[in-house]
Computed example of a mutant assay.
Amino acid sequence: MNNEKNQVQIELSAEVAEGIYSNLAIISHSSSEFVIDFVRLMPGIPKAPVKSRIILTPEHAKRLMFAIEENILKYEKQFGTIRTNDDSAAIPPFMAPGGQA
């Protein structure tokens, strides 16, 4: 079997490569999809815009969860434990209002 036929070439445009800063993710779901809204909260500004929305199948959401977990473990092995600030309970970094899309 030729591996070159099975490879996918991924293109990254300059605009997407810049990335989008987010300090809040709102995760909701239905029976067929997970929706992750990435939001940017700014001090003193009452409105927080959704900067990006990602829609995933449940299977891909679970794969993403495992991939993030694996990468956090690798990060912490190299750089040390990631601390979370318990004082930020008023605005958690990830929340699922109602859990429905």
Rank of each mutant, 00 (worst) to 15 (best):
E4P: 03
N23W: 02
Q7C: 10
K51R: 12
I27S: 05
Y21T: 08
K51H: 02
R63L: 11
M65D: 12
V50G: 05
I45N: 04
P49V: 00
N3F: 08
K5N: 13
D87G: 12
I45W: 07
M95T: 15
A61I: 09
K74I: 10
K47F: 03
A89G: 11
L64V: 13
T57Q: 06
E18P: 03
L56G: 06
L56F: 08
S13Q: 02
L24G: 08
K77C: 03
P46T: 05
L56M: 08
D87Y: 04
E59V: 01
I10H: 06
F79A: 11
M65I: 10
K62F: 14
A101V: 10
I26A: 15
R40F: 05
K47L: 15
G80T: 00
P46M: 03
R83H: 04
V39G: 00
E33C: 13
I20R: 06
I27Y: 00
S30I: 06
F94N: 11
E70A: 10
G44S: 01
I91H: 15
R40A: 05
V35Q: 06
Y21W: 07
Q100L: 15
S22Y: 02
I68S: 14
P97S: 06
Q7L: 09
Q100M: 13
D86C: 11
T81G: 01
Q78F: 13
A89F: 11
